[in-house]
């Protein structure tokens, strides 16, 4: 195998084309599979079933699949951004307390009986607040490993977890059941349009900075020496990862492991150049969640498994295998 010493435009285009193809294949599979036997090609038949097929394929499977792609993309992107920010490949929205903040915000709003728009806004506020808290407490940390930032994030995440438990324990029983299931993740009926726009917007905002993010991930001082505006980049990463997390959490509940596993796995396979890793992570995260969703709604059909359980069950072994394979190569 030829060693890839550096990323070229051709390699970027080739890999992105392959990932796009994979996405389309998965999307097609997702449209074909479900708890019922309807298939997309029945749309164009003139049988009485065509109407039903239209409802099933276009109104249910398509939006759900798109939601999986978008939410998976957002989660994976949030993980990648926080890994760059912390220079730690194990960072993800959970470590920094971003997901925790978002869920506290959402739970509090649910408890107060707020509408779904307010729940989303409240989750976003929670994500930003926990992010700002972490940043404010650890902003003067110039150490290369930024250990204080990481520890502060872990502390804030624990605090958010405790707040969530508190909210859940004072919640009425019926609400509690809904909230707990909501926390396991649910893609049915997840709004994908707004989330998709947010994802696209963040990509357009971040990709031009990808080379700066490359050198930022080598350390703040190195990035400064190479002419990057490290402080602004850090704020950008913070806001972008918070917004991505909040949108993902409010769209589909708490789904774990995508933000941790997808960027890490892609790093092992594709190298670490953010110019490739950023768009690849978005597509990879989308594909991973879409695949998990296909499994979650077909294995026990018409019963469904929580998609968060599937991502955890499938993601962790794959991650371990990649890690081990990499160890052997060296």
């Amino acid at each position: 195998m030829k060693e890839h010493t550096h990323l070229t435009r051709q390699r970027l285009a080739l890999i992105m084309a392959a990932l796009l193809l994979l996405t389309l294949v998965l999307l097609t599979i997702s449209l074909c599979l479900g708890s019922t036997a309807y298939r997309p090609w029945q749309l164009w038949q003139s049988t009485p079933d065509a109407q039903m097929a239209r409802d099933v394929v276009l109104q249910l499977r398509l939006p759900r699949s798109l939601a999986a792609l978008v939410v998976g993309g957002l989660l994976a992107m949030a993980g990648l951004l926080q890994q760059i920010l912390l220079r730690n490949p194990l960072a993800d929205p959970y470590v920094l307390g971003t997901s925790g903040g978002a869920s506290v915000g959402a739970l509090a709003a649910l408890l107060l009986g707020a509408s779904s728009v307010l729940v989303s806004l409240s989750a976003g506020t929670g994500a930003l607040a926990s992010t700002l808290l972490v940043f404010a407490l650890a902003r003067h940390d110039h150490s290369s490993q930024q250990s204080r930032l990481l520890l502060t994030g872990i502390a804030v995440a624990s605090f958010a977890g405790a707040l969530s438990s508190l909210l859940l324990s004072i919640a009425p029983d019926g609400l509690l059941r809904g909230m707990v299931f909501w926390m396991l993740g649910d893609l049915a009926g997840a709004p994908w349009q707004v989330a998709g726009l947010v994802l696209l917007g963040l990509l357009i905002l971040l990709w031009p900075c990808a080379r700066d993010l490359n050198i930022l991930s080598h350390g703040q001082q190195a990035a400064h020496a190479l002419g990057s505006q490290t402080r602004q980049l850090q704020w950008l990463l913070y806001f972008a990862s918070s917004i991505a997390t909040a949108v993902a959490v409010t769209s589909a509940g708490l789904i774990g492991f995508i933000g941790l596993i997808v960027p890490h796995a892609l790093r092992l396979v594709l190298g670490q150049d953010i110019r490739l890793l950023l768009p690849a992570t978005v597509l990879g995260g989308g594909c991973t969640l879409l695949a998990a969703d296909i499994v979650s709604r077909t294995v026990l059909a018409p019963q469904q498994l929580p998609v968060g359980v599937v991502t955890a069950l499938a993601g962790v072994p794959v991650f371990l295998w990649l890690l081990q394979r990499r160890g052997r190569q060296q």
């Binding site: 479900g34 708890s35 019922t36 309807y38 039903m52 409802d55 099933v56 249910l60 499977r61 299931f181 049915a188 009926g189 709604r297 059909a301 018409p302 019963q303 469904q304 498994l305 929580p306």
Partner: peptide, 14 residues
């Protein structure tokens, strides 16, 4: 089989 199953919307349509 489950007493309080989570179901797919398309199963309801069908």
């Amino acid at each position: 089989p489950s007493r309080a199953p989570t179901v797919d919307e398309e199963a309801v349509l069908v």
